[in-house]
């Protein structure tokens, strides 16, 4: 069955006319010297090849800092060419914001450039990277050909960091995963939130701790109140000039948490909880229905455990 399925997916990939495996990456200028590649607000499919994620780069005086490397080797290679089309300076650093595959599987294309991430992300990529890559191969097909996991060698710490003459503020947060890095470029006022921020696309929660995530959103929103703040590049969804991605992510998580608690309190099982309607405010977000159901799968066991009492 598995073999049949992957054959089917490969067929689909071919049918989608993706034989040249071109992600069509075009850098979007966010601010002076700051650019982003904005992915589709879709699920992984053989048609999009995994280009559902935002990546970006900062042109510093001494070279270019790359933020996330995308879902595959091909993506990383094409990203590298698209960066060179904007600025020819050497690449000085590639940062992975967290250990989800759409954010680091392009690392291979940046051989020779130092790769950096939070210690928790380095550990996560080392432990789960291969399983993620295998999964993505199944979901997107031949786009992934030749992709191998490259674990970042350099550990990042929270705080200010001067890289290639650019002052970056690194925020070591958590909640979307065990280790989520947000990067604030103080020169331009652009905040890269990683997957702590989703915009116009329902958030994903496979490794989420909702309480910590909400706290991280507060920390990020404080930055948007600083005078120099100019824009947010979320992990998924369009660039924003205000805190809207953070507020939207927070509203979704608050509702999700409340909905799961209410279901558990009412005695519903997981299927019944999945079948519940999503309020109109959230139902309009792309992928709201599928992400809600997935989140029930990820989070409901923990929530229901809280309301069951020890029996003796």
């Amino acid at each position: 069955m598995k073999r049949w399925l992957s054959g089917f997916l490969v067929l689909l990939a071919g049918a989608a006319g993706a034989a040249d495996f071109d992600y069509g990456l075009k850098a979007q200028r966010v601010a002076d010297g700051v650019h982003a590649f904005i992915g589709k607000t879709e699920d992984f499919t053989p048609a999009n090849g995994g280009n559902i994620v935002n990546t970006g780069f900062i042109v510093a005086p001494g070279g270019i800092i790359v933020i996330d490397s995308g879902p595959s080797r091909r993506y990383g290679e094409q990203m590298r060419r698209a960066i060179a089309a904007v600025d020819q300076r050497p690449l000085v650093l590639v940062i992975n914001t967290h250990h989800h595959p759409d954010h680091f599987l392009g690392n291979q294309a940046f051989a020779g450039v130092p790769l950096a991430a939070l210690p928790g992300t380095i550990k996560g990529i080392g432990e789960e990277g291969n399983a993620f890559a295998e999964n993505l191969f199944r979901l997107t097909g031949d786009w992934m050909q030749g992709t191998e996991v490259v674990v970042p060698g350099q550990a990042l710490r929270a705080g200010h960091q001067e890289t290639a003459g650019r002052r970056l503020r690194l925020l070591a947060l958590a909640g979307h995963t065990e280790a989520d890095l947000a990067i604030y470029d103080e020169t331009s006022g652009v905040l890269f939130t990683g997957d702590l921020g989703f915009f116009e696309r329902a958030p994903t929660t496979p490794h989420a701790d909702v309480g910590r995530w909400l706290a991280a959103l507060d920390a990020l929103e404080a930055i948007t109140r600083e005078p120099g703040f100019r824009a947010i590049v979320p992990g998924h969804g369009p660039v924003a000039r205000d805190a809207a991605p953070l507020r939207q992510t927070r509203a979704w998580l608050n509702w999700l948490q409340m909905a799961l608690r209410r279901s558990a309190e009412e005695g519903l099982d997981m299927n019944e909880t999945m079948a519940r309607a999503i309020p109109a405010e959230f139902a309009v977000l792309p992928l709201s229905a599928s992400e809600y159901r997935r989140s029930v799968g990820h989070l409901f066991p923990g929530v229901e455990q809280e309301i069951l009492e020890p029996a003796r």
Binding site: F44, H100, P101, N135, T204
Partner: peptide, 11 residues
């Protein structure tokens, strides 16, 4: 059954 990416099972 599928998984993957931001859609992998909780571990």
């Amino acid at each position: 059954t599928v998984g993957g990416g931001c859609t992998v099972p909780s571990a």
